[in-house]
Write a protein that binds this DNA or RNA. Structure first.
Lengths: 215, 215
DNA sequence: GTCTATACCGAGATAGAC
DNA sequence: GTCTATCTCGGTATAGAC
């Protein structure tokens, strides 16, 4: 047993001095750590440590780890809007524009890490599943539907999503060379045509089981 | 302090009755749970419970959770061999054959769940990273190199890997419709041409940054 | 309303009893 | 070979100081 008379002298309770916004501090730390280490890889204690606050403040402000995750990665609206813009323009270069635009988003310091964290957690287990399905499915699919209206829209969107997800993971998460370190323009030249075909070119005829789903 | 005289009466130490192979029992339970819940989602305790053995037997037989994971998913040799076979045949239908073959592997009860768990853990954090990179990178790339020898081999393999990974995740993990529930032949008809192009068709000219890597 | 301290529970890992 | 006890760590809940 230790005597309880000795108390730590580091910090006293009560509001902080200085103009630091603790909540924002935590959010930033969470964004960085989730992007670096994934959902289960980042501990609430690590977030608190990087933010320079006490551990209990994290659940205090955000409830629990799941809610913190969703708060940290809540950039879906922005992503959706930016994807929207990529669709306007010459249809002949839609595939290239998509790759270039998405690659720019993924390279971006702020939203890029969030998107990658979202994808990681979508594939892994845990609460991020829901949020990430919104990204992969709803965002891409809805964006696509808004711009190309054919009965094949869902099929085309799901095919495009598969290549976009694979591209993002291979290039930024798995670091498969030489795809990982090639320039954006080269990447666009290579995978752009795939998206072009999925989104605009005629699809193969024998596709009954897919078309059946469009009820 | 508790008195140490009172001992549990549930099970006594010592070898089991019956002919059950404890090690194999644990491996099967681990395979199932890793495939269902991912690496961090499955607890050693849960594995032990499903196998009907004591918790401590798991680290006893496999060292630690990482080693158990690798043991459970050690099907790389099999996967590599099956991929090898897919490459032999008419080059004109290579893409379709690959999709059909890979889809069959992923649908398979035994190795399919292992491959999916491998992919999940590759994208997520944790020890599976290494093993999964071997799959995504070495297996696909090496297999490919064995069959098509051009200076572009690595580039082509990385592109194909990106589509294969995205296909597997979108279809089997994220369940993006209608890709998720379409038939294998329809899937092959749709994404086969992509692999065909990545692997065999001429690549775009302006690809300096990629070619520079082939030293 | 903000912050600190601390306690609880579940999970991985290890030592050692039987 | 099998199991118990225990250590440590991480997420969460609570009590209470300012």
């Amino acid at each position: 047993m230790t005597t309880l008379t000795q108390v730590a002298e580091t910090h006293r309770p009560g509001p902080r001095g200085g103009g630091t916004d603790v909540r924002a501090e935590i959010l930033w730390a969470a964004r960085e750590l989730f992007a670096e280490q994934g959902f289960r890889g980042t501990t609430i204690r690590a977030v608190a440590a990087r933010a320079g606050v006490d551990v209990a403040l994290v659940p205090y402000y955000f409830g629990n780890k799941d809610a913190l995750f969703e708060a940290a990665l809540d950039t879906a609206g922005d992503v959706s809007a930016r994807l929207d813009e990529l669709f306007v323009g010459d249809p002949a270069s839609l595939g290239q524009r998509l790759v270039l635009g998405i690659d720019a988003m993924l390279s971006d310091e702020g939203s890029g890490s969030a998107m990658l964290a979202l994808m990681r957690s979508a594939v892994a287990e845990g609460p991020g599943r829901q949020a990430a399905l919104i990204f992969a499915n709803a965002v891409i699919l809805a964006t696509y539907r808004r711009h190309i209206e054919t009965p094949d829209a869902a099929l085309r969107a799901s095919l495009a999503a598969s290549q976009i997800i694979g591209f993002a993971l291979a290039r930024y998460v798995l670091n498969i060379e030489p795809l990982a370190s090639m320039s954006s323009t080269d990447a666009a030249a290579n995978v752009g045509p795939t998206l072009q075909r999925y989104l605009l070119d005629p699809l193969p005829e024998a596709c009954e089981s897919a078309r059946k789903l469009e009820a």
